[in-house]
């Protein structure tokens, strides 16, 4: 039996999908510089909000490096009502190029800037 248009379409989509996946991975393997992980944190202080359990500062963590990081611990520090407050969060994984939404909590609105430090991570 001769092929109908649906079979040709299936073949075309299949070829594109297979070439896309294998080609994408191959190009990535050849051209992407596999540098170490570089966690970058961007806080959205304007979007911070008060809750019953504290002042929440949302932010985004991304990885500008070439390799993924595992078990990343980040520490946020800020001065709240004259006292220095610290808190830590742990991310299971931070793949390169992917944004992870996080939030840091403080007892009240910080007086000044919130700084975030990478405490450490594991390499896969």
């Amino acid at each position: 039996m001769r092929q109908n248009w649906a079979e040709w379409a299936t073949l075309a989509v299949s070829v594109v999908a297979v070439i896309g996946v294998i080609g994408g991975l191959t190009l990535d393997g050849i051209f992407t510089d596999a540098g170490p992980p570089e966690p970058v944190v961007e806080l959205q202080v304007d979007a911070a909000y008060q809750t019953e359990t504290g002042w929440i500062v949302p932010g985004t963590v991304s990885n500008d490096g070439g390799e993924a990081a595992e078990a990343i611990v980040l520490r946020a520090t800020a001065s709240v009502a004259g006292n220095e407050e610290e808190n830590e969060i742990t991310l299971d994984y931070l793949p390169p190029g992917t944004d992870v939404d996080v939030s840091f909590g403080f007892s009240a609105e910080p007086d000044g800037e919130v700084t975030v430090q990478t405490i450490g991570f594991r390499l896969p």
Partner: peptide
Amino acid sequence: GIGAVVATVALLLLGRIGLETSLRD
């Protein structure tokens, strides 16, 4: 190819890939 398309749709529906996912991921 069908495997790739089905996997893509399933991963989209399960929320495992989305706009915030990097292309490589």
